[in-house]
Design a protein around this nucleic acid. Sequence first.
DNA 1: TCAAAAGTGTTAAATATACACCCATGA
DNA 2: TCATGGGTGTATATTTAACACTTTTGA
Lengths: 246, 246
Amino acid sequence: MSGRELKKTIVETAGPPDFKVGVDNAIFSVDTAQNRLLVLLVMRQHEPFLGQWSLPGTLVRHSESLEDAAYRILAEKIRVNNLYLEQLYTFGDLGRDPRESPDSYGVRYLSVSYFALVRFEEAELVGSGVRGIAWYPLEEVPQLAFDHNKILQYGHRRLRNKLEYSPIAFEVLPELFSLSDLYQLYTTVLGENFADYSNFRARILKLGFLADTGLKVSRGAGRPATLYRFDAEAFAPLKDKPLVFI
Amino acid sequence: MSGRELKKTIVETAGPPDFKVGVDNAIFSVDTAQNRLLVLLVMRQHEPFLGQWSLPGTLVRHSESLEDAAYRILAEKIRVNNLYLEQLYTFGDLGRDPRESPDSYGVRYLSVSYFALVRFEEAELVGSGVRGIAWYPLEEVPQLAFDHNKILQYGHRRLRNKLEYSPIAFEVLPELFSLSDLYQLYTTVLGENFADYSNFRARILKLGFLADTGLKVSRGAGRPATLYRFDAEAFAPLKDKPLVFI
DNA sequence: TCAAAAGTGTTAAATATACACCCATGA
DNA sequence: TCATGGGTGTATATTTAACACTTTTGA
């Protein structure tokens, strides 16, 4: 063992390990036209896992909070005005990143994952020619780099829970939307395991935070739909109560 | 600026920052005898925040996962057989640790927090003479080191949610318990904002995962209470359904 | 024999669920 | 004029919530 290697080992085992901290985003959107739940994947441009699909991620920079980093990757990949974002889970198991030396000394890699929901219609993919970045239907997601399939699984569960218990749907719907728009969003994400349209409608209207704008929209055949607006003020008193939206 | 300082700056700004990763635990228990919700605090023995109360925490070591570290601190502070533990949230804002240099270059500190619930009666505090470690009633918690008051707030919210929607109560009750034991646990944690004893009883029994052992226990005056056991097998099919226990 | 703790039963109101049906539009 | 999507109503089962009440014990 050379002198340099010896020194390296001593230094690295002396104190607690240094971590590189990455942020990985599970970014979801709903294509209501095709009734599909989509997740944003990017092709890795570097080792490890070069050429494999992964969740968009980045290492956290100096003078940047975790959330800052999460917003930064998101902004690097898509342009979007409306979104919901929150922290998901932190993965720090040994050996989750092949850049860690196998003897488990030296630098460690840790991933703080974030979960985001964006409006599909307005989400514009950024990048020259949009190569190596794509919306994947959730059922068609391939084997991903690192432990990203696991992160995605976490994210999917969180999405379903959030949709059921919080008003995140309205962060991602257009300003004005019909009740079928809303219903479709719910069915696409949650499957069809809940109330039929009629009951859904009655329930959500009774909650009292959807304001009828009086406007109508006609989409091909059929009766025109009334457009509603989410009334944040009317919702405020319900904010801290356990609410079910389905 | 000396040569040494210049070099330091260059090196540190070249790549992404190194993080020291800490784990902090919000460890709760319920003193049913006194109807109090308690949290475990330790007195800091080192700078920063020397002599101030804090959540028990540690830096993650080489060859140790985040969860390993969480279990390690817990074991260092209390001896306990039954517990529930899960990851809470990761705090990585700039300046959350005073050891970070103020110009926000150099090493960063990040805290992955864990939430635990342990059985108070069997939890034995470890340490010579049990100095600098104590169960604090939640309402009497003082100003804590770092951002630990915030972590504690997160933990408390998680505790209430978990108790309402998951069977964590049974991880922390004795093997055999009466329905009033269970009810008292719930009232202590959640306040009294839910069903009265009679309705609570009817609901929880109807769920069908509490097995009547036939045994009775008499505690002073009053009719002896039937002892129940949590039947994990009977609960299994309900595991993935949204359940409300209150 | 009484107070304390455990356990049971009853009711009205609110909600969930499964439907059947009516309305307004474009082709 | 009819298929299509939007919207309304109703009947029943189930759940919630507030109680009054009975039972069994120790003092």
